[in-house]
Design a protein around this nucleic acid. Structure first.
Lengths: 338, 338
DNA sequence: GTTTTTTGCGCAATCGTTTGCGCAAAATTC
DNA sequence: GAATTTTGCGCAAACGATTGCGCAAAAAAC
């Protein structure tokens, strides 16, 4: 196969490269190219199965139809699920995806973002990892950015996240209604705002139950199986068991379950369990786990929607609209672990 | 911030664009640029935090340092896991990743591959979906391709997959050694060679046990929870239960478990279960599931290794080496479900 | 048969790099 | 001091597309 450039078609048909370009980008009419020429060019293009060089096109037009997506860890089912949704939403809007895995590392995140900029992506969707929004804010000056799942406190960057505060209150409320009065929360990464919101919701909900005396404990410091395991183990060793454990993520939950099993503690007879994050697997555990489901699909849908609006807006040289910052309400999935 | 092109630095320092380019790409010495000029240019580049336009660079050099990766469904933990490994291996080799999710659809796969070619990716790693290698073979003429996890029968395309045949024999052997004589295999997509290999391994292993009378049944037709559920349900309704069920994937396994639970059948007391694919969650099921683990890390490592060799080879205009086609041996993870 | 309008298309610049070739000035040789 | 070599760097083409401008030929108007 020869080189399939516009030049090639131009030579074959005897018209100029410009004409071929106009025809193939569908602007034949607009530039008053004759039907005969249009047909001829299209025929030739079909014959060699012409596909434009998107690199050259990108250089010239400054658009790549590519979105950079960075997540903390694709291996985590939660992010895999989220990525999946975002990718398919983006595809529907005509974008392709450059994916980076920041591995929860600031340095990797920085690399990924710089790479996105160098590649001139049209926009960026990110689950941020670092504690400061500054790099994102710098980038947002020239490239639209939408944060998902995690966000920053004082920033004008748009974000679409779960309302972790509400979710946490829902879970806590449920536990209390079930009659539990001694609650243990195992939290994740304390740097993450999402985690702090969950902690806040947990405590506020307890406080709101006036007249009911409830004991609360908060331990842990990472969204990991090990953290769940270690903290639960510590509690088990102390012998001072709570009525219920609220795991701030599925990973924490699993660690906790492992520890409880080692001690032969029965769920939910001896202790109740509730968790954040949804995951199909949780229905196959015994007992199936009651949990707070984050509105992933909605996050994926909204974020891509916002991002493409931002991109369109910039293209029209309009000023950015007021940043859209939404916290979406999660839902309670009741199963058998409480 | 102004435009950060070579031109800008050239203007600032008073040298030509070519000189700036040579200095910044580290070829200053080679082109005998004076130390003074080199220092000056570098200083200016640092000052504006210069980052090359990778699009322009790609157009000129015909390399994008990008690899296209397509998988059937990123949402499936198996592929999420695999992608994660491939992505991080590629990053270590200096490549970035354009990710496409083919959703097990031929049409999506075709789109993705064309997109990769249009973007001039340096190479492609793919879990193929379609039944025919023809499109891949066309592409491989100009862009290196390595298949993973699934492969084609009669092709010279390189691939790195699990030896499903061996894995299936290992699982079957284990079941038989455990004393089971009535085996049910629930298979996945029959179009997939990997599935056919598993079926073959299952039957051959049984045949190899001369002198032992073993009953075998093979049902099912998809790598899905529903398929596992439906087929198991059918068996339960017939009342003709096997001693053991061999699920050809985790998804099938889960469906099967759901059905068994509905009927209150105890595992492993009344029936044994074994599965293909590894997944951390399987250890948290009750009982933990005995399974065949695919060497994902090895697949990720080898495939990126092969691919980058192919790319280097092409760059040196050497002929392609004999295609590397490897089937890696899986391993048995013994737990409590048999 | 001019003049004006419309039709149909090409010229050439441009996007930001890379790179082969070559030229002028400085340094060295004789 | 002329010839030669070395040093240091710039010119301009190229990658493959897009697009503003303008020009020639054909058609229409008078």
């Amino acid at each position: 196969m020869k080189k399939k450039s516009l030049q090639y078609i131009a030579d074959k048909t005897g018209v100029s490269v410009s004409t071929v370009s106009r025809v193939l980008s569908g602007n034949g009419e607009k530039y008053r190219i004759s039907q005969k020429t249009i047909a001829m060019v299209k025929l030739e293009a079909d014959k060699i199965d012409y596909m434009p060089d998107l690199i050259a096109k990108g250089l010239r037009t400054n658009r790549t139809d590519t979105i950079g997506l960075t997540v903390p860890n694709i291996d985590n089912p939660f992010f895999a699920n989220l990525s999946c949704i975002v990718i398919s939403e983006l595809k529907q809007r005509g974008y392709h995806v450059l994916l980076a895995d920041s591995m929860e590392l600031d340095s990797e995140e920085r690399d990924a973002l710089n790479m996105f900029v160098s590649r001139k992506v049209d926009g960026i969707i990110a689950v941020p990892v670092s504690a400061s929004p500054s790099l994102y804010e710098e980038i947002a000056v020239h490239t639209p950015v939408v944060l998902i799942d995690r966000y920053f406190d004082e920033t004008s960057l748009p974000y679409i996240c779960t309302n972790n505060y509400i979710g946490s209150r829902m879970a806590t409320d449920y536990l209390i209604r079930k009659g539990h009065r001694d609650l243990l929360a195992i939290e994740g990464n304390r740097r993450a705002l999402s985690n702090r919101d969950r902690t806040g919701g947990f405590l506020d909900e307890v406080k709101s139950k006036k007249g009911i005396s409830i004991r609360t404990r908060i331990v842990g410091n990472a969204f990991s199986v090990d953290n769940g395991y270690n903290e639960t183990m510590a509690i088990l060793k102390s012998g001072d068991l709570p009525d219920a454990i609220f795991a701030f993520s599925t990973t924490i939950l699993l660690g906790s379950i492992r520890a409880l099993r080692e001690y032969g503690i029965r769920i939910p007879e001896e202790i109740s369990l509730i968790s954040f994050d949804n995951n199909g697997f949780l229905d196959f555990l015994d007992p199936a786990i009651t949990r707070i489901e984050q509105p992933l699909t909605e996050i994926g849908r909204r974020s891509t929607e916002i991002l493409s609006e931002l991109i369109e807006n910039r293209r029209k040289e309009l000023p950015d609209p007021k940043p859209i910052q939404e916290l979406l309400k999660p839902s309670l999935i009741v199963r058998d672990s409480c």
